[in-house]
Amino acid sequence: MNLIEEHQVKCLKLPTRLQDYALTNFNYISTKSALKKAIKRKQILINHQPASTATWLENGMLISYISTENASPKVFRLKIEVVYEDHFLAVINKPAGFPTNGNYFKTIERALPFNLKKSDLPDALNFPVPVHRLDNQTQGLLLVAKTIQAKSLLSKAFQNQEIKKCYRAICFGGFSEKTIEINEPIDTHQAKTIISVEDSRVIQSQYFSLLHLTPITGRTHQLRKHLQFIQHPILGDQLYQGDFCTKLAHQGLYLQSFQLEFFHPFCKQLRKINIDLPKKFTKFIELN
């Protein structure tokens, strides 16, 4: 058990609910949702005893916010490019071929302690945690939280669609329009993708296009399903490629998360992070 933050109640004129008091008096609990989760996990103590949502505070009470995380899991020693890192968060360039997380050993999450420095802040996580996911075969930028508060605030920003992600893909076929908007539900849920066509060309008698994809919503396999829907599946997509095929040499899924744009919740600055086109994309485009 590690103490994150502690506060003695003072200057109350009347008994006050814990949920109303903690949000304005604790530095590392910033949302009602985070507070409720901390109470449920027995991370909030009143006079060294677990609190509840029904707790009322009086002057003199001691409120403690503790970390109850388990020890770090066994580390997967996979070298990953770190694109950005500070005490609160990091952005890595996830390689294709590994799941983001899950009940496996060889995951990106288990490799994070091997690649990132542990935060020295009071609410540091025992090990860093991705705050969103990329498919196993998708490569590119992945946002990671290093503290409890960062995890809460970044997760909330994703839920509120305040973090912008942009992808590159090579797909089958050419396009007559430069910009396409797809509004096609996925599993009965609204889903929207904006497509910008960067280049369309014939490679050995077959049309392919390089696209920029901006998912406005975040449904599972949204980009892959939307491109299948308009009959332009992504090259190398074994699940949604259908009858489209090519004899040209290629490797894996040609989908990359190349840009992340977000408001840093602690530095209070807009961060826009980009990475270059992957080598396998350029090699395929340059085929004669």
Rank of each mutant, 00 (worst) to 15 (best):
Val82Glu: 05
Asn103Ile: 08
Phe105Trp: 11
Tyr84Leu: 07
Arg41Asp: 13
Asn70Leu: 12
Ile80Gln: 00
Pro50Asp: 04
Arg17Trp: 12
Ala96Ile: 05
His87Thr: 10
Pro50Trp: 04
Asn70His: 13
Phe76Gly: 09
Lys32Gly: 14
Ala34Trp: 08
Arg77Asn: 15
Ala22Ile: 15
Glu85Ile: 09
Ala38Arg: 03
Thr53His: 01
His48Gly: 07
Ser30Ile: 06
Phe98Trp: 14
Ile63Pro: 10
Lys42Pro: 00
Asn27Thr: 14
Asn27Tyr: 10
Lys42Ala: 08
Thr55Arg: 00
Phe105Thr: 00
Gln19Gly: 08
Ile46Thr: 02
Tyr21Ala: 10
Met61Ile: 04
Phe105Ser: 02
Tyr65His: 15
Asn25Ile: 06
Thr68Leu: 09
Ile39Phe: 02
Ala111His: 00
Ala54Gln: 12
Glu81Asn: 15
Tyr104Pro: 08
Leu45Phe: 03
Leu62Ser: 09
Ala54His: 11
Tyr104Gly: 11
Ala38Leu: 00
Ala54Tyr: 09
Asn25Glu: 07
Lys74Ile: 13
Arg110Val: 03
Glu81Arg: 15
Phe76Ser: 12
Ser52Lys: 06
Thr100Ser: 13
Lys37Trp: 09
Arg110Leu: 10
Phe105Cys: 00
Asn47Ile: 04
Lys40Gln: 12
Ile80Gly: 01
Thr16Val: 12
Lys36Met: 11
Gly97Val: 14
Asn59Leu: 00
Asn25Trp: 06
Thr100Tyr: 13
Lys79Leu: 05
Ser30Trp: 04
Tyr28Phe: 15
Pro95Met: 03
Gly60Arg: 00
Leu57Ala: 06
Leu112Lys: 07
Gly97Arg: 13
Asn25Cys: 09
Arg110Tyr: 07
Thr16Ile: 10
Thr100Phe: 12
Tyr21Met: 08
Gly60Cys: 02
Tyr84Gly: 02
Thr55Gly: 06
Ala71Arg: 12
Asn103Tyr: 11
Glu81Asp: 15
Ala51Ile: 04
Tyr65Cys: 04
Ala34Gln: 15
Ile108Ala: 01
Phe76Pro: 01
Ile46Gly: 08
Thr31Ser: 13
Lys36Tyr: 14
Asp20Val: 12
Arg77Pro: 15
Asn101Pro: 08
Asn47Ala: 07
Phe98Thr: 08
Ile63Lys: 03
Ile66Ser: 06
Pro50Ser: 05
Ala71Thr: 13
Val82Leu: 02
Thr16Glu: 14
Leu14His: 07
Leu112Met: 02
Gly102Asp: 07
Phe105Pro: 05
Ala96Arg: 14
Asn25Arg: 06
Ser30Glu: 13
Asn59Tyr: 03
Tyr21Ile: 09
Pro73Val: 09
Arg77Met: 15
Ile80Trp: 01
Arg110Trp: 07
Asn93Arg: 14
Phe88Lys: 06
Leu62Asn: 13
Leu14Gln: 07
Ala34Tyr: 08
Val91Tyr: 01
Gln43Leu: 11
Leu35Thr: 07
Ala34Asp: 14
Ile44Val: 05
Thr53Ser: 06
Phe105Met: 07
Asn93Ile: 01
Val75Phe: 03
Tyr104Phe: 14
Ile39Met: 01
Gly97Ser: 12
Lys32Asn: 13
Glu81Gly: 11
Glu81Thr: 14
Phe76Cys: 09
Ser52Glu: 04
